[in-house]
Protein backbone atom coordinates (compact mmCIF):
# COMPACT_ATOMS: atom_id res chain seq x y z
CA UNK A 1 0.00 0.00 0.00
CA UNK A 2 2.66 2.51 1.00
CA UNK A 3 4.70 1.98 -2.12
CA UNK A 4 1.58 2.39 -4.24
CA UNK A 5 0.84 5.69 -2.56
CA UNK A 6 4.07 7.00 -3.93
CA UNK A 7 3.39 6.07 -7.52
CA UNK A 8 -0.35 6.59 -7.96
CA UNK A 9 -2.34 9.78 -7.59
CA UNK A 10 -5.64 7.97 -7.43
CA UNK A 11 -6.95 4.42 -7.77
CA UNK A 12 -10.34 2.81 -8.21
CA UNK A 13 -11.18 -0.59 -6.76
CA UNK A 14 -14.20 -2.52 -8.05
CA UNK A 15 -15.85 0.78 -8.77
CA UNK A 16 -19.44 0.64 -9.98
CA UNK A 17 -21.57 3.72 -10.49
CA UNK A 18 -25.36 3.57 -10.41
CA UNK A 19 -28.14 5.91 -11.47
CA UNK A 20 -31.00 4.48 -9.46
CA UNK A 21 -31.05 0.77 -10.25
CA UNK A 22 -29.16 1.22 -13.54
CA UNK A 23 -25.50 0.32 -13.33
CA UNK A 24 -23.91 2.88 -15.65
CA UNK A 25 -20.31 1.89 -14.94
CA UNK A 26 -19.34 -1.56 -13.73
CA UNK A 27 -16.29 -2.94 -11.94
CA UNK A 28 -13.58 -0.49 -12.87
CA UNK A 29 -10.04 -0.94 -11.53
CA UNK A 30 -7.68 1.83 -12.53
CA UNK A 31 -4.39 3.05 -11.16
CA UNK A 32 -3.73 6.60 -12.25
CA UNK A 33 -0.05 7.42 -12.13
CA UNK A 34 1.16 10.71 -10.69
CA UNK A 35 2.19 13.50 -13.07
CA UNK A 36 1.08 11.58 -16.11
CA UNK A 37 -1.80 12.11 -18.49
CA UNK A 38 -4.33 9.31 -18.53
CA UNK A 39 -6.90 9.30 -21.32
CA UNK A 40 -10.28 7.63 -21.15
CA UNK A 41 -11.60 6.75 -24.61
CA UNK A 42 -14.54 4.78 -25.94
CA UNK A 43 -17.76 5.13 -27.92
CA UNK A 44 -20.53 7.56 -26.92
CA UNK A 45 -22.63 6.59 -23.93
CA UNK A 46 -20.17 4.08 -22.50
CA UNK A 47 -19.82 5.95 -19.20
CA UNK A 48 -16.57 7.86 -19.72
CA UNK A 49 -17.90 11.13 -18.30
CA UNK A 50 -19.74 9.33 -15.52
CA UNK A 51 -16.48 7.69 -14.48
CA UNK A 52 -14.60 10.99 -14.67
CA UNK A 53 -17.23 12.79 -12.61
CA UNK A 54 -17.03 10.11 -9.95
CA UNK A 55 -13.45 11.18 -9.15
CA UNK A 56 -14.48 14.63 -7.87
CA UNK A 57 -17.92 13.54 -6.72
CA UNK A 58 -19.77 15.66 -9.25
CA UNK A 59 -22.24 12.81 -9.65
CA UNK A 60 -23.45 13.63 -6.14
CA UNK A 61 -25.68 16.27 -7.72
CA UNK A 62 -27.65 13.57 -9.48
CA UNK A 63 -29.93 12.63 -6.62
CA UNK A 64 -30.30 8.96 -7.57
CA UNK A 65 -26.60 8.30 -8.13
CA UNK A 66 -24.51 6.14 -5.83
CA UNK A 67 -21.35 4.08 -6.05
CA UNK A 68 -20.11 0.69 -4.99
CA UNK A 69 -16.43 -0.01 -4.54
CA UNK A 70 -13.76 2.55 -3.74
CA UNK A 71 -11.87 5.49 -5.15
CA UNK A 72 -8.65 5.82 -3.19
CA UNK A 73 -6.54 8.94 -2.93
CA UNK A 74 -3.48 8.46 -0.71
CA UNK A 75 -5.21 5.42 0.69
CA UNK A 76 -8.36 7.34 1.67
CA UNK A 77 -11.65 6.27 0.13
CA UNK A 78 -13.23 9.40 -1.35
CA UNK A 79 -16.65 7.82 -0.89
CA UNK A 80 -15.94 6.75 2.68
CA UNK A 81 -17.87 7.92 5.71
CA UNK A 82 -17.18 11.46 6.85
CA UNK A 83 -15.57 12.56 3.59
CA UNK A 84 -16.56 16.09 2.59
CA UNK A 85 -17.21 16.30 -1.18
CA UNK A 86 -16.39 20.02 -1.11
CA UNK A 87 -12.86 19.23 0.09
CA UNK A 88 -12.55 16.45 -2.51
CA UNK A 89 -13.33 18.97 -5.28
CA UNK A 90 -10.82 21.39 -3.90
CA UNK A 91 -8.08 18.79 -4.37
CA UNK A 92 -9.37 17.40 -7.66
CA UNK A 93 -10.11 20.18 -10.13
CA UNK A 94 -12.16 19.91 -13.28
CA UNK A 95 -12.26 21.48 -16.73
CA UNK A 96 -15.47 21.03 -18.67
CA UNK A 97 -16.41 20.35 -22.26
CA UNK A 98 -17.72 23.82 -22.97
CA UNK A 99 -15.73 26.70 -21.49
CA UNK A 100 -17.72 27.95 -18.49
CA UNK A 101 -16.00 31.01 -17.08
CA UNK A 102 -17.93 32.87 -14.38
CA UNK A 103 -19.72 36.02 -15.53
CA UNK A 104 -17.13 38.13 -13.77
CA UNK A 105 -13.91 39.86 -14.79
CA UNK A 106 -10.92 37.82 -15.91
CA UNK A 107 -9.20 38.71 -12.65
CA UNK A 108 -12.21 37.75 -10.52
CA UNK A 109 -12.56 34.42 -12.32
CA UNK A 110 -9.30 33.36 -10.75
CA UNK A 111 -9.52 35.29 -7.49
CA UNK A 112 -12.98 33.95 -6.62
CA UNK A 113 -11.96 30.31 -6.30
CA UNK A 114 -8.88 31.24 -4.32
CA UNK A 115 -10.88 33.46 -1.98
CA UNK A 116 -13.58 30.90 -1.17
CA UNK A 117 -10.79 28.42 -0.45
CA UNK A 118 -9.29 30.74 2.12
CA UNK A 119 -6.32 32.09 0.16
CA UNK A 120 -4.56 34.72 2.26
CA UNK A 121 -1.54 35.57 0.12
CA UNK A 122 -0.93 38.18 -2.57
CA UNK A 123 -3.90 37.89 -4.92
CA UNK A 124 -2.31 39.84 -7.81
CA UNK A 125 0.64 37.49 -7.71
CA UNK A 126 -1.58 34.41 -7.69
CA UNK A 127 -3.66 35.69 -10.61
CA UNK A 128 -0.55 36.38 -12.67
CA UNK A 129 1.07 33.03 -11.81
CA UNK A 130 -2.12 31.12 -12.67
CA UNK A 131 -2.60 32.95 -15.96
CA UNK A 132 1.05 32.34 -16.85
CA UNK A 133 0.62 28.70 -15.90
CA UNK A 134 -2.27 28.45 -18.34
CA UNK A 135 -0.31 30.28 -21.08
CA UNK A 136 -2.81 33.12 -21.10
CA UNK A 137 -1.04 35.95 -19.31
CA UNK A 138 0.41 37.72 -22.33
CA UNK A 139 -2.96 37.82 -24.06
CA UNK A 140 -4.96 39.20 -21.13
CA UNK A 141 -2.57 41.13 -18.91
CA UNK A 142 -3.88 44.48 -20.17
CA UNK A 143 -7.55 43.62 -19.74
CA UNK A 144 -7.83 41.82 -16.42
CA UNK A 145 -10.83 43.95 -15.46
CA UNK A 146 -12.78 43.03 -18.59
CA UNK A 147 -15.46 40.36 -18.64
CA UNK A 148 -14.26 36.81 -19.22
CA UNK A 149 -16.91 36.57 -21.93
CA UNK A 150 -14.95 39.01 -24.06
CA UNK A 151 -12.38 36.27 -24.64
CA UNK A 152 -12.43 33.73 -27.47
CA UNK A 153 -13.53 30.15 -26.78
CA UNK A 154 -9.98 28.86 -26.61
CA UNK A 155 -8.93 31.69 -24.29
CA UNK A 156 -11.97 31.04 -22.09
CA UNK A 157 -10.99 27.39 -21.80
CA UNK A 158 -7.45 28.35 -20.80
CA UNK A 159 -8.96 30.76 -18.26
CA UNK A 160 -10.91 27.82 -16.83
CA UNK A 161 -7.65 25.90 -16.58
CA UNK A 162 -6.01 28.92 -14.94
CA UNK A 163 -8.72 29.21 -12.29
CA UNK A 164 -8.39 25.49 -11.62
CA UNK A 165 -4.63 25.58 -11.08
CA UNK A 166 -5.04 28.71 -8.96
CA UNK A 167 -6.41 26.59 -6.12
CA UNK A 168 -3.52 24.10 -6.43
CA UNK A 169 -5.33 20.80 -6.88
CA UNK A 170 -3.38 17.56 -7.13
CA UNK A 171 -5.40 16.15 -10.00
CA UNK A 172 -7.09 17.90 -12.91
CA UNK A 173 -10.00 16.17 -14.63
CA UNK A 174 -10.71 17.24 -18.20
CA UNK A 175 -14.00 16.32 -19.87
CA UNK A 176 -13.38 16.67 -23.62
CA UNK A 177 -11.74 20.05 -22.99
CA UNK A 178 -11.09 20.81 -26.64
CA UNK A 179 -14.17 19.41 -28.34
CA UNK A 180 -15.79 22.85 -28.65
CA UNK A 181 -12.60 24.52 -29.93
CA UNK A 182 -11.00 25.05 -33.31
CA UNK A 183 -7.82 23.10 -34.24
CA UNK A 184 -5.41 25.90 -33.31
CA UNK A 185 -6.97 26.41 -29.87
CA UNK A 186 -7.00 22.64 -29.46
CA UNK A 187 -3.28 22.48 -30.16
CA UNK A 188 -2.63 25.17 -27.56
CA UNK A 189 -4.62 23.26 -24.94
CA UNK A 190 -2.67 20.10 -25.76
CA UNK A 191 0.66 21.89 -25.45
CA UNK A 192 -0.53 23.32 -22.17
CA UNK A 193 -1.38 19.85 -20.89
CA UNK A 194 2.21 18.77 -21.50
CA UNK A 195 3.37 21.73 -19.38
CA UNK A 196 0.81 21.03 -16.66
CA UNK A 197 1.74 17.41 -16.18
CA UNK A 198 5.05 18.49 -14.66
CA UNK A 199 3.04 19.51 -11.61
CA UNK A 200 -0.33 17.87 -11.90
CA UNK A 201 -1.89 14.50 -12.63
CA UNK A 202 -4.32 14.78 -15.51
CA UNK A 203 -7.21 12.52 -16.45
CA UNK A 204 -8.84 13.40 -19.76
CA UNK A 205 -11.95 12.07 -21.46
CA UNK A 206 -11.76 12.47 -25.22
CA UNK A 207 -13.61 11.42 -28.33
CA UNK A 208 -10.68 12.35 -30.44
CA UNK A 209 -8.48 9.31 -30.93
CA UNK A 210 -5.56 11.31 -32.34
CA UNK A 211 -5.72 13.57 -29.31
CA UNK A 212 -5.54 10.63 -26.93
CA UNK A 213 -2.58 9.22 -28.88
CA UNK A 214 -0.81 12.60 -28.97
CA UNK A 215 -1.17 13.75 -25.40
CA UNK A 216 -1.61 10.81 -23.05
CA UNK A 217 0.81 8.46 -21.35
CA UNK A 218 -1.82 5.89 -20.43
CA UNK A 219 -5.14 5.05 -22.02
CA UNK A 220 -8.20 3.36 -20.62
CA UNK A 221 -10.52 1.91 -23.25
CA UNK A 222 -14.18 1.74 -22.24
CA UNK A 223 -16.96 -0.26 -23.85
CA UNK A 224 -20.54 -1.27 -23.07
CA UNK A 225 -21.56 -4.71 -21.97
CA UNK A 226 -23.99 -5.77 -24.67
CA UNK A 227 -26.51 -7.32 -22.28
CA UNK A 228 -26.67 -4.90 -19.33
CA UNK A 229 -25.70 -1.67 -21.16
CA UNK A 230 -23.20 -0.99 -18.39
CA UNK A 231 -19.90 0.58 -19.33
CA UNK A 232 -16.57 -0.80 -18.19
CA UNK A 233 -12.87 -0.49 -18.85
CA UNK A 234 -11.93 -3.33 -21.20
CA UNK A 235 -8.27 -2.45 -21.53
CA UNK A 236 -5.90 -0.17 -19.66
CA UNK A 237 -2.30 0.18 -20.73
CA UNK A 238 0.42 2.54 -21.89
CA UNK A 239 -0.94 4.67 -24.70
CA UNK A 240 1.52 3.52 -27.37
CA UNK A 241 0.58 -0.09 -26.70
CA UNK A 242 -3.15 0.63 -26.86
CA UNK A 243 -2.69 2.30 -30.24
CA UNK A 244 -0.10 -0.01 -31.79
CA UNK A 245 -0.51 -3.38 -30.17
CA UNK A 246 -3.77 -3.69 -28.20
CA UNK A 247 -4.57 -6.98 -26.55
CA UNK A 248 -8.31 -6.74 -27.03
CA UNK A 249 -9.77 -7.09 -30.51
CA UNK A 250 -12.49 -4.53 -29.70
CA UNK A 251 -9.86 -1.96 -28.75
CA UNK A 252 -8.06 -2.55 -32.01
CA UNK A 253 -11.25 -2.15 -34.00
CA UNK A 254 -12.07 1.07 -32.17
CA UNK A 255 -8.70 2.80 -32.37
CA UNK A 256 -8.28 1.90 -36.04
CA UNK A 257 -11.74 3.22 -36.87
CA UNK A 258 -13.25 -0.10 -37.88
CA UNK A 259 -15.72 0.04 -35.03
CA UNK A 260 -19.44 0.76 -35.54
Amino acid sequence: MQSENGKYAIETKNLSIFYGAFEAVKDVDLQIEKQKITAIIGPSGCGKSTLLRAFNRMNDFVVTSHVKGEILMHGTNLYGRGIDPVEVRRRIGMVFQKPNPFPKSIYENIAWGARINGFKGDMDELVEASLRGAALWDEVKDKLKESAYALSGGQQQRLCIARTIAIQPEIILMDEPASALDPISTLRIEELMQELKKNYTIIIVTHNMQQAARVSDYTAMMMLYEDTRSGTVIEFDATNRIFTNPKDKRTEDYVTGRFG
Binding site: M58, V86, F96, I116, I167
Partner: peptide
Protein backbone atom coordinates in the same frame (compact mmCIF):
# COMPACT_ATOMS: atom_id res chain seq x y z
CA UNK B 1 -28.76 30.35 -15.20
CA UNK B 2 -26.90 27.61 -17.09
CA UNK B 3 -26.06 24.48 -15.13
CA UNK B 4 -22.50 24.73 -16.44
CA UNK B 5 -21.89 27.80 -14.26
CA UNK B 6 -22.97 25.97 -11.12
CA UNK B 7 -20.85 22.96 -12.03
CA UNK B 8 -17.88 25.25 -12.62
CA UNK B 9 -18.32 26.70 -9.15
CA UNK B 10 -18.81 23.35 -7.42
CA UNK B 11 -15.73 21.98 -9.20
CA UNK B 12 -13.72 24.79 -7.58
CA UNK B 13 -14.66 23.48 -4.15
CA UNK B 14 -17.48 25.96 -3.60
CA UNK B 15 -20.27 25.11 -1.19
CA UNK B 16 -23.92 25.33 -2.20
CA UNK B 17 -24.29 28.67 -0.43
CA UNK B 18 -21.20 30.17 -2.08
CA UNK B 19 -22.37 28.95 -5.47
CA UNK B 20 -25.91 30.24 -4.98
CA UNK B 21 -25.10 33.67 -3.62
CA UNK B 22 -21.87 34.51 -5.41
CA UNK B 23 -22.32 32.89 -8.82
CA UNK B 24 -25.99 32.15 -9.53
CA UNK B 25 -27.66 35.22 -7.98
CA UNK B 26 -25.34 37.77 -9.65
CA UNK B 27 -25.83 36.01 -12.98
Amino acid sequence: VPRALREGAYAMGATRLETSLQIVVPA
